[in-house]
Computed example of a mutant assay.
Amino acid sequence: MTPITEVEGRRLALSNLEKVLYPATGFTKGEVLHYYATIADVLLPQLRDRPVSFLRYPDGPDGQVFFTKNVPPGTPEWVTAAEVPRSEGPARMVLVQDLPSLMWAANLVTEFHTPQWLIGAPGEADRLVFDLDPGVPASVVECCEVALWLRERLAADGIEAYAKTSGSKGLHLTAAIRPVPSERATEYAKELAVEAERAMPRLVIHRMTRSLRPGKVFVDWSQNAARKTTATPYTLRARPEPTVSAPVTWEEVENCRSPNSLTFLAPDLAPRLQDYGDLLAPLLAPDQAGALP
């Protein structure tokens, strides 16, 4: 029998709570739901008003993994949805605006992916993002070196960057910016990626060609495009272990010495929040947004 629980007045059917989703650690679906409930205060502000793409893995990372962009069948009527313009025609997508919606989505077993714009202004970027992706044998250690360079370069333009792990093997840099068309944000990000490659030619590549990437850090600037999404801060990832896209301090980035030094699992996040608070809170403060030159 599927247990029914009430979250802020909404009734939810939460299923298969004992199911092991991460065999490497025995992490269950119930623990996934507990993680998202625990982290809701910092995750929800990052999700709110941004249409969500779900990467679902209902049988764990080793099972079927698939993207869901449109409102899934069976979505409760109280979950907010909005029409989102697309080149191929408008789509209806979910907005995770509150704790009941978050727990409903978590019950689907999902990574959360969001664009760099808000639903009130589709295609107007209020975030800038760089996805630093290491090509073997490069690792997060090299990503940190590139991140420090990009941080200084952005600061020179009056833009303050914040770092988080991808939850996979790389690093994400993100910044709050005054809204500009996504095309302009993409153009600016590409300019900086090209600059980084010129400054560190043995370490950085800005082109997507996979044959060029071994041993280098691919600075992916393309996720600023309006149609693209990035793993939302604090989301779990569909990896062998319940890794999290976790915010990190610049001191941690500077001291990164081994490929595993910036890997954080779901149980690590509550203690980190106690120690550091929400490291990405400044992204939510409009008065701290930088202006693209």
Rank of each mutant, 00 (worst) to 15 (best):
L150R: 04
A196T: 05
R153K: 13
L173N: 10
S222A: 09
G158M: 10
E197W: 07
I205Y: 10
V204C: 11
V248M: 12
A266L: 05
E197F: 08
P286V: 06
E254V: 03
P201L: 04
I159C: 04
A199N: 08
F218I: 08
N260A: 14
V253P: 12
R207M: 15
T249L: 05
A289V: 02
K169A: 14
A281D: 08
Q274G: 15
N224A: 07
A176L: 11
E187G: 13
T229S: 06
E252G: 05
K216S: 08
T209H: 15
L236T: 03
L173A: 10
D220I: 04
K169V: 12
L173C: 11
M200F: 06
P214W: 00
L283V: 02
T263W: 01
D278L: 01
G170P: 06
T165D: 04
P282F: 11
K228Q: 15
M208N: 11
D287R: 14
E183D: 14
E160G: 03
A185Q: 11
E191N: 12
T243M: 10
Y188H: 09
S258I: 01
T249R: 04
G277V: 13
T174Y: 05
K169M: 12
D157P: 07
A175F: 04
S182E: 00
L150Q: 09
S245Q: 03
A225S: 10
K164S: 04
V204Y: 06
P201S: 08
L203E: 03
M200Q: 07
T174K: 09
W250S: 08
T209V: 13
G170M: 10
R210M: 15
S182W: 04
V204P: 02
L284Q: 14
P271I: 03
R272H: 11
E197M: 06
P271Q: 15
P181K: 01
L171G: 13
E191S: 15
E254A: 12
P242Y: 01
M200Y: 05
E191L: 09
R198D: 15
L265P: 00
E241S: 10
E152S: 15
M200C: 02
Q223C: 03
L280I: 13
V253W: 10
L154M: 09
L212P: 03
V180D: 06
R153Q: 04
R202H: 14
S222V: 12
E152A: 12
F264Y: 11
R198Q: 13
A176R: 14
D278Q: 13
K169W: 05
K190N: 14
E252Y: 09
E160I: 07
A193P: 04
